[in-house]
Amino acid sequence: MSDVSTDFIIDIRHISKVYEMGDEEVHALRDVSLSIGHNEYIAVMGPSGSGKSTLMNMLGCLDTPTAGLYLFNGENVSDMDDDDLADIRNREIGFVFQTFNLLPRASSLQNVELPLVYAGLNKHDRHERAQEALTSVGLGDRVDHRPNELSGGQRQRVAIARALVTKPSIILADEPTGNLDSKTGQDIMELFDALWRGGNTVILVTHEEDVARHARRIIRLRDGLIESDAPNELHASL
């Protein structure tokens, strides 16, 4: 394998994560290595307890590994402090959650603006970029609506707009269709497909084969280890 390479957005080497649960040590990840390049479309799969969520928290810089090295765009994230991690998340990572996690009392526009608030943008620029992001997910006419005035699919689109608005290096989606009916879920997946085709790097964390089949590369975890990491055969012919 090569040395530090800027070809990869994410370069994880021999990472492990151990949780202390009382007297017991839980090895959520054991010696995982992984690299993800620009404009990849990846699904991370695995049953519950496989370390899938831990890996997602790690990739999303929400948590740091117990051992190993994590390079994000060549920057060592493994031993960053909380505020530096917050900056990395703000700049480089767009999160999409299963439960949308919008602020209930804020309008769509305000929700999408939030990452830009923490990035320190002025009001005018925030409005402009948030409006742009909402338009790109097909909600240009819903800027003043609050989450409770939107359907589940629309809420998830607002959440995706919020993830996109900082133009992050990766979009990290955790079970993005888990709370949606299958038709709406399908629409959302098509939106992710479009984002990927538009040049974004998309990482889906899911246990649903239907969701995973949209990805071009599938990483399967089991017991804290990578069981398989291979191109998605469904798209092999493309």
Binding site: A86, R89, N101, Y118
Partner: peptide
């Protein structure tokens, strides 16, 4: 939960 969301999208300690 809201604090978690804010932190996830880049809110610092301060």
């Amino acid at each position: 939960k809201e604090i978690g969301v804010r932190k996830a999208i880049g809110a610092r300690h301060s």
